[in-house]
Each structure stands twice: as structure tokens, then as C-alpha cells.
Design a protein around this nucleic acid. Sequence first.
RNA 1: GGAGGAGUGGCCGAGCGGUCGAAGGCGGCGGACUUGAAAUCCGUUGAGCCCCCUUCGGGCUCCGUGGGUUCGAAUCCCACCUCCUCCGCCA
Length: 454
Amino acid sequence: MLDLRILRDDPDLLRDNLAIRKIPVFDDLPVDAPDWAAKTVDRLRKLDEEYRRLLEEEERLRHEQKRIADEMKALGRLPRDEQAARRRPLVEEGRTLRERERLLADRVAEARAARDAAWSKVPNLTHPDAPRGDGDDAHRELRRVGTMRDFEAEGFAPKDHLTLAEGLGIVDFEAGAKVAGQKFYYLVEDGAMLDLALQMYALEVARRHGFRLHVTPDLARAEIVAGLGFQPRGPSTQIYSVEGTDLCLVGTAEITLGGMLADEILDAEDLPILLAGLSHCFRTEAGSAGQESKGLYRVHQFTKVELFAFTHGDVQVSDAMHRRFLDIEIEIFEGLGIPFRVLDMATGDLAAPAYRKYDLEAHLPGRGGWGEITSTSNCTDYQARRLKIRYRDPEAADRRRGRNRFVHMVNGTAVATSRAIVAILEHYQQADGSVVVPEVLRRWVGKDVLVPRA
RNA sequence: GGAGGAGUGGCCGAGCGGUCGAAGGCGGCGGACUUGAAAUCCGUUGAGCCCCCUUCGGGCUCCGUGGGUUCGAAUCCCACCUCCUCCGCCA
């Protein structure tokens, strides 16, 4: 959620930002409608003004009510016989005020809910250097790391990860489908060890960089999920809900790590707070039917080590942290020996909470292209505002704005094991279908090479 | 799952239906003392929102959350959440 002051003080900024983000706020104002951004801002302003108008009126009524109560209190000093007579009209007036105020309170709540529902869909502001545009070619490639395999020179055609995994006997999609449905799977034998090895590897790197390690809950309250900017409910949600409760299966430990400090006021000197979280991740993949329907690349459940930072509420600071996250992600996949490229994601492709996002895309010879393996986002104060995560800023002596400021929140993937396995299988495959285990994982996998079953 | 008890400001902890945004303490900040620091003393110190908007100023809300009773609720009633103790069950 953005600061409402932007709506009131700088509507043009908001309009321009909506235009480059291409995220709709009102259903009847889709991003291809004429002047949709300006019209969206107009409507937001009307909603806000309506709410404030009603609020003012309600506050006036409440003020009156308090006046009556105070007068009543003063009657206590009068002689007994006089009190009853003086009390009656006051009680009458107070009762009338109460009724009027209650009616109005409902309208205020409605107006506020309407404004907030719309406002919470407005995306975060955008880093000035993020490339504008949308679509795959709009992203800016920042660098390439590692060496791609030259299968032509090696004299064999690369297989895709699914073929390799089946040959090795390390995933069982059939059993997954039988027990839980399409896009669920079992990791078997070396597959299980590979998954755990990636987790251990990522946790070690995270810890070396000063992140405090957590195994997080895999479920979270819908309120927390929404606080992080995810849509917990609705037809297009990516999030599973547990029936009869207000719980959701988390799509990422970003939710559980970010929610940890909800409603807290931190000490400035405790920042930045660096957390790593290991969790299972569940995604409905609504709307992605048919896309990469086979294999481990897009699945309903996987395991991930997530990095998270709470920083001072200053873009300079969170920006620097964001770059640090990117460096750690690069270090992790460089350590695995996987060739990849780094993308500065285009404005039209950023999720609502992100101010800027970098993706790492591994080169996947099996599919002959690049595939996202990790990403990192600076969400500035967008999530913190709704989660009410603040810190006392001793510098900010300004009485008007208050001493407490919202933290900035940065998240990033250390390792999503399913996609890392895809990249490892495809990059490290050999002509006979065996797969070399990346050196850094061997101490946990216990093997140098995975060999196909006879 | 059953039976009790409790949730108050950054933290701890008082609180009779009106005099309570809330005693007291800790912590923080400012000052005095000191060469400096500690100790001591004095003062100060919650959050959010609305109007005004430069300040000054005015107003509303908030004592776990949401309802209710009342002219008036931190205080009474109901539901939910969380924590603690005991019993049961279990990895």
C-alpha cells in the first residue's frame, strides 16, 4: 500500500506511474481503455474525498456526544432533586446523537472500505532506472555469468530435464498425480538428496552473509498474505486457502518472514534485520494451464530458501541492500556452476509491491533458452505500511510526521529447489544420460555423478 | 479436546462506569552537577487519523480483535484471537 499523501499531493506522479506499471485498479478501467490512468486517479481522489467528508461529519457528531456526557457529569454537583429534571433532556439528546452517529459510522466504514479496496491495488512507485515497457524483450540484461555448454561440439543433443530425471529415477510424477494431482511429484532417492543438498548449500551461504536462519510455517493468515501484497482470495489467486479457516498455504517464505514483525516498532539501531527462511511453497498456477505443464519447472509445490531484509526507510539504503541481494544470488548460482543471465525487469512486468526487481535466468539447454530461477525485489515501504512495521528514527524530530517511519523490505530467492534441479540436470547432463553433481553439493548428495537406472 | 487465569503505552506494571490517554517504574530525550563519565536531581517522552496547512491551533480514534449495553466503557456483557497453568491425547 502506498502513502495516501501521494494521491493528495502528487496525483500526476501517481498517474504516470500507473501508466508504466500497467496494473489495473478498477475492473471497468482496464489498462487499454483511453486515459485509464488519469481516470483511475480521478476516481481514487473522489473515493478519498468522500471518505474524508463523511469522517469529518461523524467526528463532529462524536464531539457533540462527548459534550453531552461532560454536562451530565457536571450535574453530580447539583442538589438531588434538581439532578433528575436536568438529566432527562440530556439523556434524550445524547440518545438521539448516538443514533445519528451510528448510522453515519456505517457510511464512513463503507466509504473507507471502498477507498482502501481500490487503494490497496495501486502498485508501488517505480525505480527511475528500471527499464520501461512490458514483454520479454523490454527487460534489460545486466550481465551473463558462466559458460554455456556447446553440445554440438560435444557431439550429442541435450535432453530436457524431465527425460533426464525419469532416466535417473529421481522424480515420480505419476505417483504425484495419483495422490495430489497434476503438477505434484515425489522426489526419489538421489532426487531427495539433491533437494536437501540445495537447501543446505543455500542456508550455509545465507548464514555466512549474516542472515538469521528460520524454518517457517507453511501456512499463514489471509491478513498477513494480503499484507505482503498477495491476493489471498479470488478467482485468479495464486494462493491456496484452507477451507473453514482463515489460513492460506504460503506461496513463498517472503510471506512468513515479512509477517514476523507485523505491528512492531523497531529500534533504528537494530536495522538492517536479515532473515533467511526455508519453507515449502504452494502455488495454484491459476491461469497457467498448458504452460510448461510437464516437468519440474512449474509445479504446485516446491521448497525454497528465501532471503529477507528490513532496512531503514530510505531508498538509498534499500537500493543498496537490493544490490547486495543480487550479489548473493549471483554467488549462489555461480557456486553451482550454472550459466545464467541477470535481468533488470521491465516496469510493465513488476508485481504491485515491487519498486524494482532483478531476475536470474539460467540457461536451460534442454529447452534451448533461458528460464527464471531466482529473483529479488525491493518493495520499499509498500508492504511495511499495511503490515505496520516501523522503526523509531531518532533523526526525525519532526513532530508533524512523527518519529516512527516505515521500514523498507527487500526479498530474494536464495534457492528454489525445483528450478535449481531443472538447471542442474540440463546443464550437467552427459551423453549417456548421467548427470554430474555440482561440486558444492557433493558433500550432501554423497555422489559425484548420478547414473541412469539400468 | 476439557477446566481455570490473563492480555493496558518502546518494555514492565497500576487502574472505583464519568475527575483516565491512562499512576508508578524502566528505557529514551533535554538540562543541572562533573575535567569527562557513572551515580544523583529536575524536566520531558505513546500511536494513528481529520481540519488547518508554514507554524500556531482545533478535533476524533486507540487499553488483544470485533460486536453489544449506556447520556457516558480500559472498567459491564457476548464472540473470536493469543499467551500461561492443570488434565487428557500425541510425533
